[in-house]
Amino acid sequence: MELNSRKEGDAVVVSVKGRVDALTAPDFEKYLSEQADKSEKSLVVNMKELYYISSAGLRAVLGATKKLKEKRGDMMLAEVQETVREVFEIAGFNKFLKIFDTEKSALEQI
């Protein structure tokens, strides 16, 4: 798993590559939590090169989403691969986080 981030106005854009499983999820969780703190408002997570996520990864996303809600910010996912997207949808996470086709369209919503 590889993690990067950059500031984009009031938001922070995180990109996650590789796989988030029970082994890598603790690092992902810590990173997302730190970036949620750094962001003035919302977090955009680009998942273009994320090929696998399990419930351990969902826990990390849920934790950061709760944190962002406290400052009225949103968790936004962009460019999510089909298999990963399906995991979010079956878990019902699409109810409280927004999924965008492109990073650009996510940033335009902030």
């Binding site: 969902l58 849920l62 019902g92 986080l97």
Partner: peptide, 22 residues
Amino acid sequence: DVTADVSERGIGGLGIFLAGKF
């Protein structure tokens, strides 16, 4: 409860739920 909003969301049981779905 996969229909719950973020504030009422816990993570317990989600893994086995996903396994059962797939």
